[in-house]
């Protein structure tokens, strides 16, 4: 009888204790930089976070358009400048993406963004004359880069904000990987970079915000990629019953109304994903799908004004609709 009791007790205890196996503790850090809150979660050495912070600070110091002493600000002020290796490489890559997207991404749209008040928060709708004058200053092809020396025509201003966070994510991921980290999540203000998978081997779960509500549109299960969303629902203003959002169409210098309300790009190249998310939002569904079919290395989640959700076939199985979208039909776009 004693034995039965003891067996029952020890069995129950074993069961109770076995559910409490310790998980490795992540190192986390919150950094305010590049106009946003960044959250770093790294499974690895604590010291790596300090160096990651330094990398973020350096990136911001080089690329910020609001900091007077950044390389980009100096270039914009004087019309020419010798850039550091990293900045020159990013400018070169950004110009490539502008060309790839036939100007749907244009790093020289900055004067227009400023005129609409999106840099300061003092929103206004520029008049027709002002817009056509601004339009003449938008031309990424006018940016010349020879070696590390960049030159801009009079009045043309460059902003690498549309690719900076993507590149930062790539740089951070490369730095962490070099230092033996196999699991990290870098949330650079809604621009997410994942390194490896979670420590338990399961993929990272990235929620894509519902452009029309508070919760998620769907959830992406990913590893080793960047996830970047562009949408018109976070930074916008209303005037005279019209909504104006911060993503401008370089072809009109007005907020891009392409029929999309949210564009998410998923891929291994964070710089490309970042630049493409803006471009795809500007291009609209049909042109975006065409671009996707012509290229490799990324996938898309697109939401139209009507609330329809399109994904490209590479995300089949890793993207699931959630919330109010659960009952909707997911449109899967395939090649060919």
């Amino acid at each position: 009888m004693r034995r039965a009791t003891l067996t029952a007790l020890s069995l129950a205890l074993t069961l109770a204790l076995s559910s409490c196996s310790p998980a490795p503790a992540p190192q986390t850090d919150t950094v305010f930089a590049m106009d946003t809150v960044m959250e770093l979660t790294v499974y690895g050495d604590e010291e790596l976070l300090g160096e990651a912070q330094a990398l973020i600070a350096d990136t911001e110091a080089r690329l910020s358009v609001t900091r007077e002493d950044s390389e980009i600000s100096k270039l914009n002020k004087t019309g020419s400048g010798t850039l550091s290796g990293g900045t020159a490489a990013l400018l070169s890559r950004a110009l490539e993406i502008c060309a790839l997207t036939e100007g749907a991404l244009d790093i020289t749209v900055y004067p227009a963004v400023r005129a609409w008040g999106f840099t300061t928060g003092e929103y206004r709708v520029p008049g027709e004359d002002e817009l056509s004058a601004l339009l003449k200053k938008i031309d990424y092809a006018a940016v010349k880069l020879a070696g590390d020396t960049a030159t801009l025509p009079e009045g043309v201003l460059v902003d690498l904000g549309s690719v900076a966070k993507g590149r930062l994510g790539d740089d951070l991921a490369a730095f962490l990987t070099e230092n033996g980290v196999t699991s990290a999540l870098l949330n650079l203000g809604g621009n997410v970079r994942t390194v490896g998978a979670k420590p338990d081997g399961s993929p990272w779960r990235v929620g894509v915000r519902d452009p029309f509500g508070e919760s998620y549109l769907g959830i992406l299960e990913v590893r080793d990629v960047s996830v970047v969303t562009s949408g018109g629902y976070e930074r916008y203003f209303e005037e005279g019953g019209e909504v104006y959002w911060h993503i401008l169409d370089p072809a009109t210098a007005r907020p891009a109304k392409s029929g999309l309300v949210s564009a998410t790009v998923v891929g291994a190249d964070g710089t490309l994903c970042d630049g493409l998310s803006t471009a795809v939002f500007v291009m609209g569904l049909d042109r975006a799908v065409e671009l996707w079919k012509a290229m490799t290395g990324f996938d898309l989640v697109l939401v139209t004004e009507g609330g329809e959700v399109y994904i490209t076939d590479g995300l089949e199985g890793s993207f699931t609709l959630s919330g109010d979208y659960k009952t909707k039909e997911l449109q899967v776009v395939r090649r060919g």
């Binding site: 997410v192 990235v206 996830v227 969303t229 949408g231 949210s262």
Partner: peptide, 10 residues
């Protein structure tokens, strides 16, 4: 916490 590790939106 939420059942997602991170959130993207724009």
């Amino acid at each position: 916490e939420t059942d997602v590790d991170a959130e993207v939106g724009g």
